[in-house]
Computed example of a mutant assay.
Amino acid sequence: MNSAPPFKKAFLGPRYWPTWLGLALLWLLSWLPIPLALNLGKGLGWLLGRALRSRRHVTRVNLQLCFPELDEATRDDMVDEHFMALGAGAFEAAIGWFAPDWRLRNRGEVVGLEHLQAAMADGSGVLLLTGHFTTLEVGARYLCLAGVKFHAMYRPIDNPLIDFFMHRWRQSRSGLPALPKNDLKKLVRALREGHCVWYGPDQSLDVNNAVHVPFFNVPTLTLTATSKLAALGRAKVVPYFPARINGRYRVTFLPALENFPSADEAADAALINRMLEEGIRIAPAQYFWSHRRFKHPPAGMPNPYAVR
């Protein structure tokens, strides 16, 4: 099942020297005191949020749709908080990839691990349901520290050297190889063998296998693949969510979804969105609001991102 790409002699050539330099820089950044790294990342993120006007517009629209109860000033503050979280997330990714275990153990915790253990007690495989959060990489590291072995689902990266390292980082930490998103046979086999598979269905979108169901009360095109994959793999679905709260990391597991999958794919997709909403509310600014989550509105509804 190991799909890791091989190391190539070409990686030592001049074409990849900038990539090696970038990796070396990330390694060095991972050794900064963590509070300093986070503050640097937040500052850079704040500047980025001012420079990238189109992404700031997307973020503001998403927050207006999902949190209509907030006044404009509060939402603008959340936009800034989001970009600061994005900046910190870049440093947190470096920390998650490179930092030794001893630097992380006392800076975070895993809550509700008994829910995952209960779901796997009968030998079932598990889809680790989550979303795209700025703390995703460092959160995955805390899963590893808690002894959770899992396959990460991935999309190949255009830079082969980065792709090579991403595979090895994840496999060396999680204990299991990454699996390509488009290889259904490998995903199903892993689940049927009783493994955990990381799964974030909130960005990759196949419009032919999705339905419009509520997400923060907004009709949102949502994948139906979660229930299909759970059925094919005879797997349980256990939600988990990473967050940085008051400078500490917390990964929260919820109980496995009951009666899932059902006979109603739309109802299943709506349940997945409700679970994501619950995770997002733990640390709202740390969700990827700069992603155009509502770019496929139902027929007859306007594009919310159109500049009027």
Rank of each mutant, 00 (worst) to 15 (best):
E69C: 04
L70N: 01
E72W: 07
A73V: 09
A73N: 14
T74H: 08
T74R: 09
D76G: 01
D76H: 10
D77T: 12
V79H: 08
D80L: 12
D80T: 15
E81S: 14
E81Q: 13
F83S: 03
L86M: 11
L86P: 07
A88R: 04
F91C: 11
F91I: 07
F91V: 11
A93S: 05
A93T: 09
A93P: 06
A94C: 08
A94L: 06
I95T: 06
W97Y: 09
A99M: 07
A99F: 02
A99I: 02
A99G: 13
P100A: 08
D101P: 15
W102Q: 11
R103M: 15
R103K: 12
R105Q: 06
R107M: 11
V111A: 06
H115G: 01
L116M: 09
A118C: 02
A118H: 01
A119G: 07
S124T: 13
S124V: 08
G125T: 08
V126G: 00
L128T: 04
L129H: 03
L129K: 00
G131Y: 14
G131T: 13
H132P: 14
H132M: 10
L136W: 01
L136A: 08
E137F: 00
G139K: 00
A140L: 14
R141N: 11
C144Q: 09
G147L: 00
V148D: 02
A152M: 14
Y154H: 05
I157Q: 13
D158Y: 15
N159W: 12
N159E: 04
N159K: 05
P160R: 01
I162P: 12
F164E: 05
F165E: 03
H167E: 09
H167M: 13
R170K: 03
S172M: 09
R173S: 06
L176S: 03
P177A: 01
P177I: 03
N182F: 13
D183Y: 15
D183W: 14
L184G: 02
L184E: 03
L184H: 11
L187A: 07
L187N: 10
V188I: 15
H195Q: 00
V197D: 02
W198D: 04
Y199H: 08
G200N: 11
G200R: 02
G200L: 03
G200M: 10
P201G: 03
P201R: 00
P201A: 01
D206Q: 06
D206P: 07
N208D: 15
N209L: 15
A210H: 01
P214N: 00
F216R: 04
